[in-house]
Amino acid sequence: TFYNFIMGFQNDNTPFGILAEHVSEDKAFPRLEERHQVIRAYVMSNYTDHQLIETTNRAISLYMANL
Rank of each mutant, 00 (worst) to 15 (best):
M7H: 01
D49A: 06
L67N: 12
T1L: 06
E25D: 10
F29T: 06
V38E: 09
F9G: 00
H36F: 11
L19K: 00
I53R: 09
N57V: 11
E54F: 06
S45F: 08
A41I: 09
R58H: 11
Y42P: 00
S61C: 13
L62E: 08
S61E: 15
F29G: 05
A65N: 11
I53W: 10
V38K: 07
N4M: 11
A20I: 04
L19I: 04
R31E: 04
N4F: 08
I18M: 12
Y42C: 02
I39P: 00
N57L: 15
I39A: 00
I39S: 00
P30Q: 02
M44H: 09
N13Y: 07
D26Y: 06
T48E: 09
A59I: 08
F16M: 10
T14S: 14
V38G: 05
T56L: 14
F5W: 12
N13V: 07
M7N: 03
A65D: 11
M64L: 15
G8Q: 15
R58Q: 15
I60L: 15
I60S: 01
R40Y: 12
Y3N: 00
Q10E: 08
A65T: 10
K27V: 11
A41W: 09
F29N: 04
E54C: 07
Y63W: 15
T14L: 03
F9S: 01
R31K: 09
R35K: 12
F16K: 01
Y3G: 00
V23L: 12
I18Y: 10
S45P: 01
I18G: 06
L67Y: 07
G17P: 02
V23G: 03
N57Y: 11
A41F: 08
Y47V: 04
P30F: 05
V23P: 03
R35I: 04
H50K: 12
M7R: 05
A65M: 12
G17Q: 06
M64D: 05
R40C: 10
K27D: 11
A41H: 11
I53S: 04
F29S: 03
Y42S: 00
R35H: 10
E33T: 06
E21T: 15
G8H: 10
S61G: 10
F9H: 05
Y3K: 00
T1D: 05
P15F: 07
I39N: 01
D49H: 06
L19E: 01
D49V: 05
